[in-house]
Design a protein around this nucleic acid. Sequence first.
DNA 1: CAGTATCCGGGAGGATACTG
DNA 2: CAGTATCCTCCCGGATACTG
Lengths: 110, 110
Amino acid sequence: MYKFKGKEYPCCASLTMGVIGGKWKTVILFHLIDGPLRYNELRKEMPTVTERTLSLQLKTLEEDGVIKRKVYTTKPPLKVEYSLTEFGKTLIPTIKSIADWGVFVVNSKK
Amino acid sequence: MYKFKGKEYPCCASLTMGVIGGKWKTVILFHLIDGPLRYNELRKEMPTVTERTLSLQLKTLEEDGVIKRKVYTTKPPLKVEYSLTEFGKTLIPTIKSIADWGVFVVNSKK
DNA sequence: CAGTATCCGGGAGGATACTG
DNA sequence: CAGTATCCTCCCGGATACTG
């Protein structure tokens, strides 16, 4: 049994999937590899996600310590930036491997 | 837009997650890295999965061309082996990266 | 700008029983 | 042994409207 953040997983692979699994989390992390992004910048990169879902996924990634949220203003209009934490950066090779395979599949079809 | 097996994905990373995402698929693939396994051998490796779910996940992995199903007997008791296809083997580095990160997280907590 | 609030549907996954 | 069949629950994620 593997434990992380109070959750139990039957396999080392499922622990990782518990953190980066789901429809959107890898996409978010993939876009954050190159540096911090603001909320609306992320939305532009991910045109098909809804505000609510993006917001929820960002929150769970933050709770898992993978990304951090930094607020630059106290009054509207707000400026908020999301970035990988040091812990989150340890995921970069894995995220890149996931992204690379997607590219590989599309390219090898031609 | 990235396409694979009739499905569309907004990002290269989500294409990969479409194939290996979900609660069990990476676990199945992880156990198949070392060689073919029979249905009940897989069940032993994954004690908490139900028969139905394991069966369904194996079927979708097979449809995506990642694993192959080989039947050795025509009459009960059946002998069926699951193994990675050549295409599925291109996923090994990614699966290992995912599994390694799970191990890393557990070890670095101590 | 960066989010909540509210409502909702679908599908992933579970439990149990049965079968070629 | 290797699965189906049936039924059911949960919650992820979507749509839309609203707010500090």
